[in-house]
Computed example of a mutant assay.
Amino acid sequence: MRRTERGAFTPEERKAALWALLVAGVIAFAALMIQQWTQPSLGPWGADQAAVSMPGVLEAQPVASGL
Rank of each mutant, 00 (worst) to 15 (best):
R2C: 02
T4G: 06
T4F: 04
E5C: 06
R6E: 11
R6C: 10
R6Q: 10
G7C: 12
G7E: 13
A8N: 08
A8F: 09
F9T: 11
F9Q: 14
T10S: 15
T10W: 04
P11T: 07
P11I: 13
E12L: 13
E13W: 01
R14L: 15
K15S: 14
A16S: 15
A16C: 08
A17N: 10
A17W: 10
A17E: 14
W19N: 14
W19M: 15
W19S: 13
A20D: 09
A20K: 11
A20Y: 03
A24E: 07
G25T: 12
V26S: 03
I27P: 00
I27K: 01
F29L: 15
F29N: 04
A31E: 04
L32S: 02
I34S: 03
I34M: 10
Q35D: 12
Q35P: 00
Q36P: 00
W37M: 15
W37F: 12
W37Q: 11
T38E: 02
T38R: 11
T38D: 01
T38I: 13
Q39N: 14
P40K: 10
P40H: 07
L42E: 03
G43N: 05
G43K: 06
W45L: 15
W45S: 10
D48V: 08
Q49I: 05
A50G: 01
A50L: 12
A50Y: 03
V52R: 07
V52T: 11
S53W: 01
S53Q: 09
M54K: 03
M54V: 14
M54H: 01
P55H: 03
G56M: 13
V57T: 07
E59A: 11
E59F: 02
V63D: 00
A64W: 02
A64D: 08
G66F: 01
L67C: 02
L67Q: 02
L67K: 01
